[in-house]
Amino acid sequence: MDKSEKKITTRRDFLFTTSYTVGAVGLGAVIWPLVDQMNPDKAQKALATTEVDISQIEPGKSITVLWRGKPVFLKRRTQEEILEARSVSLDELPHPEKDEERVKSGKDEWLVMLGVCTHLGCVPLSNKGDYKGWFCPCHGSHYDLSGRIRKGPAPKNMEIPKYEFVNANTIKIG
């Protein structure tokens, strides 16, 4: 085939191009439902909120509740613990966040966070590790009294879920 012939666009070329295009769109339309069916379904999404009674938690103690299949730590911190968490310079933190940003103002004693190590998803143990906060037994990540990563392979601080105080004794997570 010489050059002059190459440039001619025939009706057949047009047919090929349009057929491929329509075929690709059709294939995509078929594949997407097959992919998306694996995402969380309506029943999973329906479990989005949990209300927790916090009236029984003494200072210095914590409870763990299940929210969306994941543990949530609710810790009522003592004044000393809050002070210690706030005395840390941000330069020392791999993922710098002030303690104030991790709690609701006026409710500074309540630390509410996902009890899920940001490394590979294990549940850290409380009151363990080099920083008196949490320690993940799986791969050795240490968290401080604000749930911030201090040492180990985890890249981020433990996540703070969306939550609110419904009244003085109840927290709604989600």
Binding site: M38, N39, P40, D41, R68, H119, G121
Partner: peptide
């Protein structure tokens, strides 16, 4: 632990992990 390996992928990691789980855990 194994499914969380995929959460290390930048940007889309968490979406991929949730997709693998079909749930939030």
């Amino acid at each position: 632990v194994i499914t969380n390996l995929f959460s290390a992928i930048p940007l889309v990691g968490d979406s991929i992990t949730t997709w693998l789980w079909g749930a939030y855990s």
